[in-house]
Design a protein around this nucleic acid. Structure first.
Length: 451
RNA sequence: GUCCCGUUCGUCUAGUCCGGUCCAGGACACCGGAUUUUCAUUCCGGCAACAGGGGUUCGAAUCCCCUACGGGACGCCA
């Protein structure tokens, strides 16, 4: 795979190898919008056989960067966005933390002083603009011209360099070919283009991607909005591949009506020119739907591996639970789950006698018949059954229904509620078989006696 | 206020560059039906959009202009 990519770049000899970067500042959160920016950079690098760089813009000393960096790195890894250069992996253009690049910034700043483009005022260093409109070459928007009218600060009076300067210097020093970032930076880009020219450099190609808007209300999504943080989905046991898949479809489309895409399909089809121009509203329901689809499609073994931590977290496995039993439960539940986070409520009655009961379903069942009577009839018959297996149970319910002139559904509803407290769940007969005769009869007895 | 970007079903989008095959396709959500057990699974069906107005053209969702609306940026934040 790696070799193939290298070959591809060599074949398109005229274009230098693509180098893109994701340059977050560690704030302690990994915003879903940042994640998508990272994803688009990653996809483009992988598509072109280029290099994906992770650069940490940690110029704010106030924050607890240790912990904040962890959130970022964990989030990136969780989403499967591996970087070729950056923290933990190194590279030829480091260091990859801006807090460690002071000498490089001073060196570049000197160039601006030498050419008269930088001057001091009020203790800060200012950049002298050219007075001409900057041309922003953007693969998504086309050419955008913008006049940067006023000089701006590039080094604060406390000596620390400003974002605009370090961003451009790093992009030059790291030989970035494409700057893929949020549209909120489009207006900044005229400043950056001016700086590139002042350093005697051709600016990189820009790709300003549309923003992600709040689900309801106006404005872009912020970290305060529900569902806006990557770590939240991780905590809720969403599958990272589902989150990644949803994110790549927000502002980009493979143009063939396909939605579930494997990573290799994604990287193969991804093009910057195919990115939309307009902002997209975030839709948690669609994400949840996609997550459910991924969960149901998981190979069973894989599903088990991912479900185990969820069972543990719900304390379902605190006692001694046989591995076979767990597997049987998971086997019948997988096809019905909307997401791993539902396991807590969906599977509780398999592991505890102290499971929640949905009173509303009971009322509904009671309105339509006499569930207690059906439960008693079933209980008597179930005790006598030779073998407590799905086929036998199905035959038994059919017999009861025939004998009493009732619908099988009446027995099923009553018994399901008695043993699970729910009106929904896995296939009924499989459910009983997995629970086993002893547990089923005990729960039926409890219900019949209690009323 | 100034500058920049945008505008197809409620939402994400295909179609726009290269005008006719689009009385606009897919998906989520919603509504209905089927699976003679439910359902949150699966299958089938339904609802629903080219922001408005002017051009150009035999013909415009697609090209041009204006208006309206939405978004972003205007920091010694990043």
């Amino acid at each position: 795979m790696r070799l193939e990519r290298r070959e591809m770049t060599q074949n398109s000899a005229a274009t230098p190898s693509v180098r893109v970067r994701f340059a977050p500042s560690p704030t302690g959160f990994f915003h879903i919008g940042s994640a998508r920016t990272a994803l688009f950079n990653w996809l483009y690098a992988r598509h072109c056989g280029g290099t994906f760089i992770l650069r940490i813009e940690d110029t704010d000393k106030e924050r607890d960067t240790e912990e904040a960096l962890r959130v970022l790195i964990d989030g990136m890894r969780w989403l499967g966005l591996d970087w070729d250069e950056g923290p933990a992996v190194g590279g030829d253009f480091g260091p990859y933390f801006q807090s460690q690049r002071g000498d490089i910034y001073r060196e570049y700043l000197q160039k601006l002083h030498n050419t008269g483009r930088a001057y001091e005022k009020d203790g800060a260093v200012w950049f002298r603009v050219s007075g001409k409109p900057a041309l922003i070459r953007d693969v998504i928007r086309g050419d955008v011209s913008r006049l940067e009218e006023k000089d701006f600060v590039i080094v604060r009076s406390d000596g620390s360099p400003v974002f605009h300067l370090v961003n451009v210097v790093d992009d030059i020093a790291m030989r970035i070919t494409h700057v893929i970032r949020g549209e909120d930076h489009l207006s900044n880009s005229s400043k950056h283009v001016e700086l590139f020219h002042a350093f005697g450099q051709t600016p990189p190609i820009f790709a300003h991607i549309p923003l992600i808007l709040k689900t309801v209300g106006s404005g872009k999504m912020s970290k305060r909005d529900s569902g806006s943080l990557v770590e939240e989905y991780r905590r809720r046991h969403f599958l990272p591949e589902a989150v990644r898949n949803y994110l790549c479809l927000l502002g980009w489309s493979p143009k063939n009506d396909r939605e579930i895409l494997s990573p290799s399909e994604m990287t193969q089809l991804f093009e910057l020119s195919g990115i939309n121009h307009n902002n997209a509203r975030f839709d948690e329901k669609k994400l949840a739907h996609m997550n459910g689809e991924y969960v149901r499609r998981l190979p069973f073994d894989d599903f088990c591996c991912r479900a185990m931590p969820v069972l543990q977290e719900a304390h379902f496995l605190d006692g001694d639970v046989a591995a076979d039993y767990i597997h049987s439960v998971l086997r019948i539940c997988q096809e019905k789950l909307r997401g791993l986070e539902d396991i807590g409520t969906f599977c509780a009655y398999f592991f505890s006698e102290n499971f929640p009961r949905d009173e509303k379903s009971w009322e509904k069942i009671s309105r339509g018949g006499e569930p207690l009577a059906r439960a008693s009839e079933f209980l008597r018959a179930a005790r006598e059954l030779d073998e407590f297996a799905a086929e036998n149970l199905e035959a038994l319910v059919q017999q009861l229904a025939d004998a009493h002139g009732r619908k099988t559904g009446e027995y099923i509803h009553a018994v399901r509620y008695a043993v699970s407290g729910q009106s929904v769940g896995p296939g009924f007969y499989a459910l009983l078989q997995v629970l086993g005769r002893e547990r089923v009869c005990r729960r039926l007895e409890a219900l019949v006696k209690s009323t």
